[in-house]
Simulated scan of single mutants.
Amino acid sequence: MRSTRRLLPGLLLALAVLVGACSPSALAFTIGDCVNLPDGSQIDDYESVDCEEAHDAEVFALPQHPGGEEEAYPGESALNELARERCEAEFEPYVGTAYADSAIYYTALTPGEESWTEADDREIVCLLVGEPQDDGTFAQLTGSKEGSGE
């Protein structure tokens, strides 16, 4: 079954954060991967690229929601808050500088209700991204940001 993550622009405590809804099965991301995401509001696939090439995002953390398989979908707001907490906590250990002092932004993909219930998807995908643009996208990155201190 093919996975789809829907991007919904949102702002959480002045953070540039996108939230994705995934259905019905989770996409497989790996920490350190540099990726290009498709245009539009649906993510049903992504392209891994060499980090030295311009890219849309870099996966820097994959925290899991603590809810077990039987736990009901907690809702978008609760997942957004958990994504904010977990991604921000993992930012400095990966990048090498505190988020508040960094020129790099992050965004997150979270499971949607269908993915949560049908695929037991509990993974939050934390992505490093460039500066937010006026059109709702982010500037591309070049080079891995792991340990960069940027």
Rank of each mutant, 00 (worst) to 15 (best):
R6T: 14
L7S: 11
L7W: 09
P9M: 08
L11I: 11
L12C: 05
L13T: 06
L13P: 00
L15W: 04
L15G: 01
A16P: 13
A16Y: 15
V19F: 00
A21K: 03
P24T: 09
P24L: 10
A26W: 01
A26D: 09
F29N: 01
T30V: 12
G32D: 05
G32A: 04
D33K: 00
D33H: 02
C34G: 09
C34P: 14
V35M: 00
N36C: 04
P38W: 13
D39N: 12
D39T: 13
G40I: 06
S41R: 15
I43A: 01
I43Q: 06
D44V: 09
Y46W: 05
S48M: 08
V49R: 08
E52R: 15
E52Q: 14
E53R: 15
E53F: 12
E53A: 14
A54F: 10
D56V: 10
D56W: 01
D56Y: 00
V59N: 04
A61F: 01
L62Y: 11
H65I: 04
E69V: 04
E70T: 14
E71I: 10
A72Y: 13
A72F: 09
Y73N: 12
P74N: 08
G75F: 13
G75N: 07
S77D: 12
S77F: 02
N80R: 12
N80S: 03
E81M: 14
E81I: 07
R86T: 10
R86Q: 11
F91C: 07
E92Y: 00
G96E: 03
T97I: 10
Y99T: 04
Y99G: 10
A100L: 04
A100S: 09
D101M: 06
A103H: 05
A103G: 12
I104E: 06
Y106P: 03
T107I: 03
T107V: 05
T107H: 04
A108G: 01
A108I: 00
A108S: 11
T110M: 05
T110P: 02
T110C: 04
E113I: 08
W116I: 07
W116F: 12
T117W: 02
E118F: 08
A119G: 12
D120M: 09
R122H: 15
E123T: 15
E123N: 09
I124D: 06
V125M: 07
L128E: 00
L128C: 05
V129A: 00
G130V: 07
E131C: 05
P132G: 11
Q133F: 11
D134A: 15
D135G: 05
L141N: 10
G143C: 06
S144M: 09
G147L: 14
S148C: 09
S148P: 07
E150G: 03
